[in-house]
Amino acid sequence: MKFTTEAWEQITPIYNDILVMPFITELQNGKLPIEKFQYYMMQDAKYLEHFGRVLAAIGSKLEDNQQAIDFFDFGKNALIVERALHEYYFELFGLEKNLKIEIEPICHHYTHFLKSTFAFDSIEVAVASILPCFWIYKKVGDEILKNQTENNNPYNKWIETYSGEEFADGVTKAINYVDIIAEKTTTTVRTQMLEAFTKASELEFLFWNAAYNTITWKR
């Protein structure tokens, strides 16, 4: 069985929970309160800054030149998407482009999980840890697009980004690379890859949950 097949089977219950969580269902029908989406976009801006750099760092460690080039591109595209999508919504919300954003608990935990995995675990485990952000977003974007009933959904720009063909191409490449890398490693490392993939998937759920419930540092 391919690694990604096994990994997706492992996190299917998490993915199913994501599809029915209020943040996603209300984003789909356009009823998500704007302040919850604002929180999400500001935290996502911070997340993608770190995510893009982790992707580039992974590329610097990959021995296969094409894989390295593609991971550099993944990192660049994450930052480009962050800038374009967030500038669009920041303007829509009337927020300053250079607004100082405090990174809140779940975003802080997720980004540090990715960075510490890259720093202290094998490159195979690091590659597995970044895949859920690609894959789950694509699956969720496709699911929302398929079930959407509101033509004037204020979140259409977000939906179009993550259900689009350009994003799909990157996701397909990332999945294939993870499988190639997993095939060449040991059973022990493959188990660690699965653990990292699962933890990152849990953090995807928690990220949207934090936005819906406006989870901040307790003072």
Rank of each mutant, 00 (worst) to 15 (best):
Lys138Met: 14
Glu150Cys: 13
Glu87Gln: 11
Val189Lys: 01
Lys31Met: 07
Lys157Ser: 07
Asn153Ile: 01
Ala128Gln: 02
Ile106Lys: 02
Met42Pro: 04
His109Asp: 11
Glu160Val: 04
Ile58His: 10
Gly75Ala: 05
Glu124Asp: 03
Phe120Thr: 14
Val171Ala: 02
Gly94Ala: 04
Asn152Tyr: 14
Pro105Ile: 00
Thr149Cys: 01
Ile175Cys: 07
Ala68Val: 08
Ile180Asn: 12
Ala174Pro: 01
Asn151Pro: 15
Trp158Gln: 00
Glu6Met: 13
Thr188Tyr: 09
Ala119Asp: 05
His50Ser: 13
Leu27Asn: 06
Leu145Val: 14
Gly52Asp: 06
Phe113Thr: 07
Thr117Met: 04
Ile69Phe: 14
Phe23Glu: 02
Trp8Asn: 09
Phe205Ala: 02
Lys2Leu: 10
Glu166Asp: 06
Ile144Leu: 05
Glu124Cys: 05
Cys133Phe: 09
Ile103Phe: 08
Ile58Asn: 04
Val140Cys: 05
Asp70His: 15
Glu87Trp: 13
Leu95Lys: 07
Asn153Trp: 06
Tyr137Ile: 00
Ile101Ala: 07
Asn147Ile: 08
His112Arg: 08
Ala56Ile: 12
Leu55Phe: 14
Phe93Gln: 04
Asn151Ala: 13
Gly94Val: 02
Trp8Glu: 09
Ile136Ala: 02
Arg190Glu: 03
Phe3Trp: 03
Ala128Cys: 02
Thr188Leu: 12
Ile106Ser: 00
Thr216Gly: 04
Phe167Trp: 07
Leu95Phe: 13
Gln66Ser: 10
Lys46Cys: 14
Phe71His: 15
Lys218His: 14
Asp179Glu: 09
Ser163Val: 02
Glu9Asp: 14
Ala210Gly: 15
Asp169Thr: 14
Phe167Val: 01
Phe120His: 15
Lys184Ser: 12
Asn65Phe: 15
Pro132Trp: 03
Trp158Ala: 05
Glu96Trp: 06
Val171Asn: 11
Ala211Leu: 03
Trp208Gln: 09
Asn156Tyr: 08
Val20Trp: 09
Tyr155Pro: 00
Lys46Ile: 05
Phe167Gln: 02
Asn98Tyr: 15
Met41Leu: 14
Gln66Arg: 11
Ile181Val: 13
Glu183Trp: 11
Ile80Leu: 12
Ile181Cys: 07
Glu63Tyr: 11
Ala68Met: 15
Glu124His: 08
Met41Cys: 08
Lys139Asp: 11
Ser60Asn: 12
Pro33Ala: 10
Ile101Phe: 11
Asp70Ile: 11
Arg219Gly: 06
Thr216His: 12
Ser201Tyr: 01
Ala211Lys: 05
Val189Ser: 03
Trp217Lys: 04
Thr186Asp: 02
Leu99Gly: 07
Thr185Asn: 00
Ala210Leu: 11
Lys139Gln: 09
Phe71Thr: 10
Gly30Met: 01
Ala200Val: 05
Glu143Ile: 12
Gln192His: 07
Ile11Val: 12
Lys138Cys: 07
Gln148Asn: 13
Glu202Leu: 08
Leu19Gln: 11
Pro105Gly: 01
Lys31Arg: 11
Met42Glu: 12
Glu63Asn: 10
Leu114Val: 00
Ala84Arg: 15
Glu96Pro: 06
Asp179Asn: 10
Thr186Arg: 01
Tyr40His: 02
Leu55Thr: 14
Tyr15Ala: 04
Glu9Thr: 08
Gln67Phe: 12
Trp208His: 14
Phe205Thr: 00
Glu150Gly: 06
Ala56Phe: 11
Pro132Tyr: 00
Pro105Thr: 01
Ile101Gln: 06
Lys138Arg: 15
Met21Pro: 05
Glu102Ile: 07
